[in-house]
């Protein structure tokens, strides 16, 4: 069973604390080398949790391309005097490169830790742990149902699009033609989904959703001794980081 996995079997809030420490630490230690190292730490944790592929995919697609853009822009346009390379009005400056590295290292460290968190923590487990800590079941409902509604809605928008096409709404051609297609596409989607809220609310009411503030749950996850151990370890690391920063 995957539950036996060293990383995956941790309690959601333990994982959250771990990820938070990684994200916060890049603001304690200013060096960009440290921040880039934190990306490697995320990568190692992802490998331990058997989610390397998804993790790598999302970081490359979502983070790296953006960071390269940011880096290039900063090296050219950040104000500075140490010009390294010049071509016409474009000039790469030492200060720009430094600023670009610092900025992208932080974006990558924080971004990849966030990506990591959701790869090693099922959202269901995460909201379960929050509900145990006192989050309202209504908030839990919003989070979980949002995640199931999105794919359903994408599907129904596809259905509406096909239906409108067969009824003669043009979806190809000039910008004006495509713009005109917009209203007949989104109107039925919005109206039908918004109208469904009434029945959704009554259906929840029919299942006693608002009767009690707290509920029982047949789904449960529990903290183990390892969670406590890791939490203490994280605290020690945080103190060490602060000491390091002050000593620097």
């Amino acid at each position: 069973m995957e539950k036996k996995n060293v990383i995956l079997s941790l309690y959601p809030t333990t994982k959250l604390l771990m990820i938070l420490l990684i994200a916060v630490s890049v603001f304690i230690i200013p060096s960009y080398l440290y921040a880039y190292a934190m990306f490697l730490v995320c990568l190692v944790i992802a490998a331990m949790g058997n989610v390397t592929k998804e993790f790598a995919n999302l970081t490359i697609k979502g983070l790296f391309s953006l960071c390269i853009l940011i880096f290039v822009l900063q090296s050219f346009f950040y104000p500075g005097t140490h010009v390294l390379w010049e071509w016409g009005f474009l000039a790469i400056k030492q200060e720009g490169i430094h600023f670009g590295l610092t900025l992208t290292s932080k974006v990558i460290a924080v971004g990849s830790s966030l990506i990591l968190f959701f790869r090693i923590t099922p959202v269901k487990d995460f909201v379960y742990s929050l509900e145990v800590m006192g989050l309202s079941p209504k908030a839990t409902y919003v989070v979980l149902s949002t995640l199931t509604i999105i794919p359903e809605m994408k599907k129904s928008s596809q259905v509406i699009m096909d239906a409108q096409k067969t009824r003669g709404v043009e979806t190809e051609g000039s910008l004006m033609v495509r713009l005109k297609a917009l209203l007949p596409m989104i109107t039925p989607l919005v109206l039908s989904s918004v109208a469904s809220t009434e029945e959704r609310a009554m259906a929840l009411e029919a299942r006693a959703f608002t009767v009690n503030k707290r509920k029982t749950s047949i789904y449960s996850i529990e903290k183990t001794g390892r969670d406590s151990f890791i939490r203490v370890l994280l605290l020690v690391l945080l103190i060490l980081l602060i000491v390091w920063r002050v000593a620097l």
Binding site: V194, E198, A201
Partner: peptide, 9 residues
């Protein structure tokens, strides 16, 4: 409250 997930969707 039901409008929130619908709005996001």
């Amino acid at each position: 409250i039901m409008l929130i997930p619908i709005g996001v969707g």
